[in-house]
Structure formats: structure tokens, C-alpha cells
């Protein structure tokens, strides 16, 4: 029934609310003004030509400092030249509002695209809602519309990464169904799909990557109809091969800047593509122990192929 799909959607949305809330952009720290030449008592005299380290300038907008300490990954090492350049400089303690002092831990910095670290190499679990548009008439007895909404749960792990490109393996499980009436007889259909897929990813940015994912797996159908003339529930259970081809994008909603440590990152994934399952004959029959008339011929409701465009909204938690 359509309420089930709505329930999936609402549940998904509910699960995502705290993540969405937490994913609100952090106030962007104001750019740390280059250290001004302080008064002789407090400033740092910088030789013209020297670079100063401005971690804040490297931080992406919205980045926050969790505990004020940059992570190792985000900690930028001051360039050596600037250290040498400061030999003739009188070091004056910067005022407190300028930033951590050089005596504190070095602030973590966004990795480069060549070294994405855990942005790229991670393991994740995800859940989402996959909606397929199936216009196969075989679905009509079981659904008043062509949409098949499924709850999708997946796990994956990056297997290989090189610079911006990475390859991950994904194991996905989706379950969903519809219910309706067929000329007054109640009908239901449930589809369970398990697929494995390689996910080829390309990081556009450490916190954003696009991917393509061809999946293959199997789908299990269970269709039923409360057939009036037999006064029994007729079932059809069948397996079919399942293929998916989807592409999408993932964006990190939450996670530390540093790419070194394995910290949870929350990703919002959206993908779309085309799914296809093998043909399933809808020969509905009663259970052996039912009270259906003897030698009842299966009710042929045709066949069903779940194929059609699909899209998915999911959340991944990588770590």
C-alpha cells in the first residue's frame, strides 16, 4: 500500500533529521588576519617577503573546530622557509584573539585531492529510500501506481584509491512492496533485493565525490492475492536476477577535516539509474495445506519484470 511507502519515507526522513540538523554549516571562522606587525612589545615582526601561516585561511567555509585543536590531518606544517625567515625576527607573543599560539597543537587541514585519506578510504554503512518506477503491467494487480519504494540498507568499503579515483565494494539490500486490490481481491507484493556492486568514485572535492555503481544480485518476490472464488490466498514466490546501474553523488554532511583519523563521516548520497530484474511468472497458487479446491490451477496474472528508472536518497555513515 501507499502508506507503507510513505512510512518508509517518513522513517528515513526522521532518521536523517539529527544528521541534517548537525549538518548545518558551522559559522565560518573569520579569516585570521595576517599577523600584524605588533607593537614592539607584542607583535611579530615579519620580514617582508615572508609567508605567514594562516590556517584559518585554508579552512573550508563552515568548517568548525571541534575542540579548537586542529587535527593532525588538518594541521598544516608551517613551511620551513618561514621558520628560517623568522630568525631575524623578534617574536612577540601574539594577542590571544589571533589564534592558537604556536605553542599549541598544529591545526588540521583539508587534505588535498591527491591524498584524500579517509575521505576516500573508508568503510561505510548506509540506509536510504529507493524508489523505482515500474511500468510493467505485471505490477498493476498489486499497485495502483507504478512506484515501488524500498528501504535500502548497504555496506561498503573502499578497496582501492588513487588520487581522486577510488573503487569500493558495496553490498546492498533493498526491501519494499505494494498492496492493492485486483477487482476486489486484496493483493500484495514484496520484493527483496540483494546486490553487490563495485562503486567507482571520483572525488571532486574531499567532501564530494561522484560515483557509478553497476550492481548485480538477486531479487526475491512474494506476491499474494485473496482470490474470492477459491476463497484462499494464492501465493507466488520466486527469485530473479537483478541488475542495477546507477550513478550519483555523495556529499559529506558531517565529519572532521582531517583525513587521517578514522572518524565518522556522514554522507548524503543521491543516485539514480535503472534497475532491472528477470521475469517472474505470476502463477499464483494456494498452499498445499489450504482449503482451495483440489487440483486448482494456478491463477496466471501474467509475468512481472521490475525494471525501470529508479532513484535513491540515502545516508551513509563512513568510518
Amino acid at each position: 500500500m501507499i502508506r507503507r511507502e510513505a512510512g518508509y519515507l517518513v522513517a528515513s526522513m526522521a532518521l536523517m533529521v539529527p544528521w541534517v540538523a548537525a549538518a548545518q554549516p558551522a559559522p565560518v571562522p573569520s579569516e585570521a588576519a595576517p599577523a600584524k606587525p605588533s607593537s614592539p612589545a607584542t607583535g611579530v615582526a615579519i620580514e617582508p617577503g615572508g609567508d605567514s601561516v594562516d590556517q584559518a585561511a585554508d579552512a573550508p567555509p563552515g568548517a568548525t573546530w571541534e575542540d579548537g585543536a586542529p587535527t593532525e590531518a588538518t594541521k598544516a606544517e608551517p613551511p620551513a622557509e618561514s621558520v628560517a625567515a623568522s630568525a631575524s625576527v623578534v617574536v612577540v607573543t601574539a594577542p590571544a584573539n589571533v589564534g592558537p599560539s604556536a605553542t599549541e597543537e598544529e591545526a588540521p587541514t583539508m587534505p588535498t585531492l591527491e591524498h584524500l585519506g579517509t575521505y576516500q578510504k573508508h568503510t561505510w554503512v548506509g540506509t536510504g529510500v529507493r524508489t523505482s518506477y515500474v511500468n510493467d503491467p505485471g505490477l498493476d494487480p498489486f499497485a495502483e501506481t507504478d512506484a515501488l519504494v524500498r528501504l535500502d540498507v548497504g555496506v561498503g568499503r573502499t578497496l582501492f584509491g588513487y588520487r581522486q579515483v577510488s573503487l569500493a565494494a558495496v553490498l546492498d539490500y533493498a526491501v519494499g512492496g505494494r498492496s492493492a486490490t485486483a477487482r476486489g481481491d486484496a493483493t500484495t507484493i514484496m520484493a527483496h533485493q540483494i546486490t553487490v556492486a563495485p562503486e567507482l568514485r571520483f572525488h571532486v572535492w574531499p567532501r564530494l565525490f561522484v560515483f557509478a555503481r553497476p550492481a548485480v544480485g538477486a531479487e526475491y518476490f512474494r506476491a499474494s492475492i485473496e482470490e474470492s472464488s477459491m476463497n484462499e490466498e494464492l501465493l507466488q514466490r520466486a527469485w530473479a536476477v537483478a541488475y542495477d546501474l546507477s550513478a550519483g553523488a555523495a556529499v559529506q554532511l558531517y565529519g572532521k577535516v582531517s583525513s587521517d583519523a578514522r572518524i565518522p563521516r556522514l554522507w548524503l548520497v543521491a543516485d539514480g539509474g535503472y534497475g532491472w530484474t528477470g521475469r517472474v511468472d505470476l502463477e499464483m497458487e494456494a498452499n498445499d495445506d489450504s482449503d482451495a479446491p483440489a487440483r486448482s490451477v494456478p491463477l496466471d496474472l501474467g509475468d512481472l519484470t521490475l525494471r525501470g528508472p529508479q532513484f535513491q536518497i540515502a545516508a551513509r555513515l563512513s568510518f
Binding site: E5, A6, L9, T131, E144, T145, V149, A182, F311, I313
Partner: peptide
Amino acid sequence: HGTFLFCAGVLALGCGDRSSAWD
């Protein structure tokens, strides 16, 4: 993001139709 998600779900619920004969 939330708006997009919600619209996707609504779209899923309302798209496509079946023959009125089933009803």
C-alpha cells in the same frame, strides 16, 4: 536536502497509474 528528499518521496507515491479495470 530535506526538501529534495520529501519531493522525491511524493513523486514516488504519485507517479504512474494502472488500468482502471483493476479497480
